[in-house]
Write a protein that binds this DNA or RNA. Structure first.
Lengths: 143, 143
DNA sequence: TTAACTGCAAACCGTTTGCACGCAT
DNA sequence: ATGCGTGCAAACGGTTTGCAGTTAA
């Protein structure tokens, strides 16, 4: 999906959720769209500030909550008491997290996904999201 | 491993890590041993208080950090900005987390573990811990 | 003896919230 | 017009930390 369509679709979604489409929400969404990979809220706030866009920290927090509920972003992990998010436009994937350099490597395994579905079935559990994090040392940091 | 041996082993481990074996650490460890499943630090503090044992909150935090590093407990998840731990004496397992009733169901899949090892190998990643959380609705909460 | 540990209270810091004003609808 | 959204600043709450006194080794 290209940027223009993503924006349009976002606008529709926001409105059909009974929410208002405000300049702030658009600005935040745009900045997130231009983000590759993972981000923290504070990072987002700075990025927005550096573009001379004025959106308060509180609004960023509130908007991220909405974006999460609408499925535009995922909470990846809480690390050092900070929440790390990711754009949810890409296909689902999981994470290898290096304890030393803090790098987050993405991977995907259909086989694992299938096994998870099987397990949920066994427990009569209806999943809506999952996350698999493997902690350790990445290739570079083992040296 | 029974309680007595666990305690003795804990004492050894603490000492061989160059740390002191203090009454506070022993008390905290005992309370954790008597805990089934998951717990939060605040819960731990209250549990300790109710036994007329005097250990400060700060010491509980500091000790939990040590226990985590020694592998006695795992950080399961940060939920609502609170850290939830679990005793790590049991075999490794993963979690189904119900969004509604907050119940945490444990499961284990050798197949998934194997696939994870395979993936780590592919990336030259050296894992030391992982966690897989599946969020959704448990059997009871789907009604 | 002395370096590690503890308790206390204050500091920290990410996040949430109350309120008055503003603006999308 | 009206009620949702915003900015501000204060409050919150889990966690961390500096320090003076205590204790295991």
């Amino acid at each position: 999906m290209d940027r223009r369509n993503a924006l349009k679709e976002f606008r529709e979604t926001i409105k059909s959720a009974g929410l208002k489409y405000t300049p702030q929400r658009e600005k935040i969404f745009k900045v997130i769209l231009s983000t590759r990979g993972h981000f923290e809220i504070e990072e987002l706030v700075h990025k927005i500030r550096s573009k001379n866009i004025n959106v308060s920290r509180a609004t960023v927090y509130r908007t991220l909550e909405i974006l999460k509920n609408l499925g535009y972003v995922n909470e990846v992990i809480k690390f050092k008491n900070k929440t790390i998010y990711e754009v949810a436009l890409k296909d689902h994937h999981d994470h290898l997290i290096c304890r030393k350099c803090k790098k987050i490597i993405e991977f995907h395994s259909d086989e694992i996904e299938k096994l998870q579905s099987k397990i949920c079935e066994e427990y009569g559990f209806k999943p809506d999201f999952h996350r698999l994090e493997i902690f350790g040392l990445c290739k570079d940091c083992q040296k």
